[in-house]
């Protein structure tokens, strides 16, 4: 008799602890995370597979002026890059009111590497590091300033590709 009651109690205990642990699991697994934060990520632009699609999704339809006003350098030394896993990139420009800046690599599986939204406080030069795939590719910098798009390209060759 006593054994049965203990058994029942044990079952209730197991049941209760199970439901408590599932709630804890759901809470920590990220299902209840504020989706708002993640939703700001421009999925369409990052998942686009051609440079044209990225530009359209990220910056809309606009006339692109291939510009001498952007001073863009890729790699040290430039042209021939040994390690594609971490390639330094620097952008500088005399342009004012820069709103958005994006880096694209045409041969990467997904061309868009990063996109930045500047407040008026941000000044160039800006340096960062990107991954490049093995072989030849073009690194593209796009700047939107005062409603206009400026685009410049650099050809690079990479000996060992990054894990893209």
């Amino acid at each position: 008799m006593t054994k049965i009651t203990i058994d029942i109690k044990r079952r209730i205990l197991i049941k209760k602890s199970l439901s408590a642990s599932t709630i804890a699991m759901v809470a920590t697994s990220g299902l209840l995370l504020p989706q708002r934060v993640l939703a700001h990520w421009p999925t369409k632009a990052f998942n686009a597979e051609t440079v044209e699609d990225v530009l359209l999704a990220l910056l809309g339809k606009a006339n692109i002026s291939s510009s001498e006003k952007l001073n863009f350098s890729v790699g040290k030394p430039a042209k021939r890059i040994a390690n594609g896993g971490s390639v330094s990139v620097e952008i500088n420009s005399e342009l004012e009111n820069i709103e958005r800046f994006a880096i694209l690599v045409d041969n990467n599986p997904f061309p868009l590497v990063m996109s930045m939204d500047f407040s008026p406080d941000v000044l160039l030069p800006l340096k960062t590091r990107i991954k490049l795939i093995k072989g030849k590719s073009q690194v593209i910098a796009v700047v939107r300033a005062g409603g206009k798009l400026y685009l410049t390209k650099r050809d690079v060759r990479v000996d060992t590709g990054g894990d893209i």
Binding site: W41, M116, D121, T128, R129, K131
Partner: peptide
């Protein structure tokens, strides 16, 4: 408390991402 820069990264950003820039004033 003023948001100055928003960066959206894809998987093409290098391991241990690095950024260097200036803010006016």
């Amino acid at each position: 408390d003023n948001e100055v820069l928003v960066i959206k990264c894809g998987s093409g950003t290098s391991q241990n991402p690095y950024f260097s820039f200036e803010l006016a004033g």
